[in-house]
Design a protein around this nucleic acid. Structure first.
Lengths: 240, 240, 240, 240
DNA sequence: AATGAATGAGTGTTCATTCAT
DNA sequence: TATGAATGAACACTCATTCAT
């Protein structure tokens, strides 16, 4: 985990700092996600991390500090886990679709943590809140670039790429934010398939659409792929 | 404010109950929105509402209770303020667009409170959280019906109305959730205009599109209307 | 109820004062007895008495005041309800036994209130506590006189009448204080019968004993009299 | 102090737990006895014990918990301090008398605490109240056994041992409960001497009485022994 | 480097008492 | 007289943070 920001550790050995911080933040992610920031106590985190209360203050300045690194861990996951999944994928349309799919998969693995980010970012001190927002902006830009590339390649018509990338990000986040509702009606892969129909397909040119169809032919829609998350749900509700 | 739910008042006069509850909740909305639920103290609410701490407990069971009615006030506003704005609007496409516009306007007036709803719903006791979610579902249904009507009237092609209505709701909520970013680049009316281009227009049939064009002709796009919120922003970033 | 003490009423009509005070104290006896002094609130008393909270402060200076009159009511009951039951009983031994019986019956009717007196006398302001103790002393004297009369009449040998009267009073009080235990093993009448065997009979002279036997012949032991409280208990434990 | 019951400490070192609990309970006994349970605040206890308020909650669950251990300390003292004083005493009559004497001495050393037990047992949660009553029952049994041994040995005639042991216990408790009155008229040793005359002597057989006389010869009556508590009182009131 | 006992300011909540009507 | 809404001081309890070991 990067020490980025102003989090100060009293311990000098950087190897140990990394390890302990990781240990503590992992416990914090779990607890903050499940119980919320304010209802989780330092003593609970210490216990869950298997360290003493006092030790935490050797690696974090205060509770806010833990929250910051906790949220940063989540945001960093978003940021770092998408690119590897796009590697080797050349076609712009395919890249865009894969980016959506990858993002949704990440959110699916961090359901509670994603909700946590929405709940708790405002609890951070202003300067740190800004850092978190930067990370979010970078994720947004990633989508925006995918869209721009599509457009430049004639696969997509002119759209408000800024706003569309926001919608794609919100689409992924919604999987967590409204999981109490969506999770009952869609398997993850179905959700992504349907989302692409609504937020990507309409903006494709004939050329772009051909590419999408080809991709579907080749890989199947997400919905038909064997994914752990692709289990069909009982109570579905589809477009007729 | 409706007393619906299980909130019990020790005071008998219903007129007074309404008044005091409103007074306290108004203070709470403001404080919770600005400072968050946990960092706001009852004493602060009492002071802001101009009453004594003890009085609050004559109208609310506990702090959770205040949060519940606070969120309920916000959700009820969503639910009750859209329909009147659709009154007299016959054309399905126009109704849909107006619903989006109306919802975004409401969110714009409740920016902080909308963020509060996302931050604090999880802090509620489970039973009350369910009531809040019900209210949210009802708002969603409102959009879904608009879409269904469009489709039935041949103005819109078959879409996943369920998911699209979610996207429309999230679009409105995003105005609050990402206002730190969107608010810098769009005026509200522009935001809505652009949103309709992305989330409504692509699904219209030729017939539906004609209706939309006609509407724009008649009323102007939202962006060109004189609205308080339609003030042009300095740093815009549009589709070229 | 007598206004004795320094309890000040703001209301002038003495008829009304009596009525209201009685009404409130009756509610207080019940509530204090069941829930304790500190855990009973003025609002509860008001509700139970069927008056408003404010009204209570027109008839009592403060909560301590209510407790005082409540305890006084109990002590007065002790003091006033025994003598009538001794009326017409001439024989000193019989008078003593009847006094014990009468006292125990009163305690049996005021089980909780008797416990209350033990719990709460110390909560009173010093001056009032003294008044309560005076009342208790008077009850003690009543027994002491019965014993003295027996001794003077040659029915009882010389005993420490002071201490014996204390034991008799404690015997009655114990019925309330240890009712959780005694009440399971004795019916009231049995309890009194056995008590007299232990605390009266041993001190009687031959003459006194003859009187006691005669009395038992005439009236039966308390245990064999048909009293509401004399229901036989399941789990008895007697002298073999 | 035994940790028996359900009291959970957050602190692990059992040595420290014992020490701190003792420290806090000693302060609590004093304060509860003097001021009562409800009028004593946690802050007062903390201050008197020389610790911080927070610390108390590392060793006690809540205020009720403190009361419980406080009362338990008193009851345990009763239970554990009598047997050693009976050690080596063979004769049943002597044992019984010594038990009474020992009990009264203990009560004399815990005057306020004994009153506290009467005032506050009802303030305990039901399950804990039951534990306290158990302890009381055990003390009662101790007396009952002494009596039974006397009877079996032919030193005492058949009596209701159950009730007599209750009376003996109440006799000891009365020293505390009515100390405002008895303490003015009797020295402790006198009180015990007189008590034995009333509650033990009358039930002895000729054989038992000889044993009692022998004991008195040997050790003197309690009243003539040099005890700290045996200071003669000014205002006495004896059997004429 | 690590522990965990200790701290005490701060919070939600209660309730005796007051007072305008 | 009577009401009951309003007050606010006081209390039990929590928990982030410190520090002696």
């Amino acid at each position: 985990m990067s020490t980025a920001g102003d989090v100060l550790a009293l311990v000098t050995d950087p190897r140990l700092v990394e390890e302990r911080r990781g240990q503590i933040v992992r416990a914090a992610v779990k607890l903050f996600s499940e119980e919320g920031y304010y209802t989780t106590t330092i003593q609970q985190i210490a216990k869950a991390a298997g360290v003493s209360t006092g030790l935490i203050y050797q690696y974090f300045r205060d509770k806010d500090d833990i929250l910051f690194l906790t949220l940063k861990l989540v945001l960093d996951t978003y940021e770092h886990d998408i690119p590897p999944q796009l590697e080797g994928i050349e076609h712009p349309v395919e890249r865009l679709c894969m980016a959506v799919w990858a993002y949704c998969k990440i959110v699916d693995g961090l359901l509670d943590a994603t909700v946590l980010a929405y709940r708790s970012t405002k609890s951070l001190r202003a300067d740190r809140r800004a850092l978190i927002k930067d990370a979010e902006t970078r994720t947004n830009n990633l989508f925006e670039e995918c869209i721009a590339t599509c457009t430049r390649g004639g696969h997509m018509r002119e759209v408000n790429a800024d706003l569309l990338s926001y919608q794609l990000v919100m689409f992924a986040h919604s999987w967590a934010l409204k999981h109490w509702s969506l999770g009952q009606r869609y398997a993850l892969a179905e959700y992504v398939d349907e989302g692409i129909k609504i937020l990507v397909e309409p903006f494709l040119t004939a050329k772009g659409r051909r590419a999408l169809d080809a991709m579907r032919q080749r890989t199947g829609s997400f919905g038909s792929r064997g994914t752990k998350a692709a289990r069909p749900r009982a109570a579905k509700k589809r477009t007729r």
